[in-house]
Design a protein around this nucleic acid. Structure first.
Lengths: 126, 126
DNA sequence: GATATCAGATACCTCAACGTAACCAAGAAT
DNA sequence: ATTCTTGGTTACGTTGAGGTATCTGATATC
């Protein structure tokens, strides 16, 4: 048992949790579900480029971790709703914080990349 | 030009920025560099399981984005220090927030997983 | 009877990320 | 003269995340 979880400790489970949080689609799914629950197809449309297979996989993984609740309404065609669990809702702040950073600093990062690529292209006479 | 950056818009560059922030090792590198600058070897030891190749790659990428500053002291053996840039330091709060969530909720997530695996194992008579 | 809807399942393939192992230069220590 | 050190580079191999394409079941609509 780890007394104090520490992501900088390679053996600590919190590291795998952090890694899960930073899965490619997980933050976007959280963001999409913050306002309200969404059906599978709505979620897919909201995110835009995710394939059904990967969306299913990611949602299952998040359901397993207890971040997302999956509710099936057995009708035809079937209806499946996804919503953040109580635990999942506590992710709102961390993920929103990350989102805000990304959105506020896109321009700066893009500028840095351009500057870097420019400055290093000259000396790299391959 | 995007007027208002939005990570939920697949075409928006902020999405690639977010994805970069959630690279496997990037958050750990940020966390390791928050207290103070570190040499290559120190950083490697601090993170524990990263290989030199991947550490180099990730640091270059972060340097390109302007998150990290690389300082070479031409001596022998060489000395190279890495530190967060001004922009990189603004990542402290977002990343620390994520870290705290992960460390505070490891146990809950682990419990959820166990519960899920238990409940679904019975019906999965492969 | 044909087609559409919804939420996937399934088989297959691709590729980029990640890892392994070996090597390097330059000086300092033994 | 050989070995150690630091901060990498290079070539190569592996893996797993993600993508593509096709199919299903149950009803409802045309």
């Amino acid at each position: 048992m780890n007394q104090v979880p520490d992501v900088l400790n390679p053996a600590c489970d919190s590291r795998t949790v952090l890694r899960h949080l930073t899965d490619r689609w997980a933050p976007l799914i959280v963001l999409a579900l913050v306002p309200n629950a969404l059906r599978f197809g709505e979620l897919r449309a909201r995110i835009g480029t995710i394939t059904p297979k990967v969306l299913t996989e990611t949602l299952r993984s998040m359901e397993r971790d207890g971040l997302v609740v999956r509710t099936v309404t057995p009708s035809s065609p079937p209806r499946v709703d996804y919503e953040l669990s109580e635990l999942g809702r506590t992710l709102t702040t961390p993920v929103e914080t990350l989102r805000e950073w990304a959105e506020s600093n896109v321009e700066a990062v893009l500028a840095n990349r351009a500057r870097y690529d420019c400055g290093h292209a000259a000396t790299r006479g391959h």
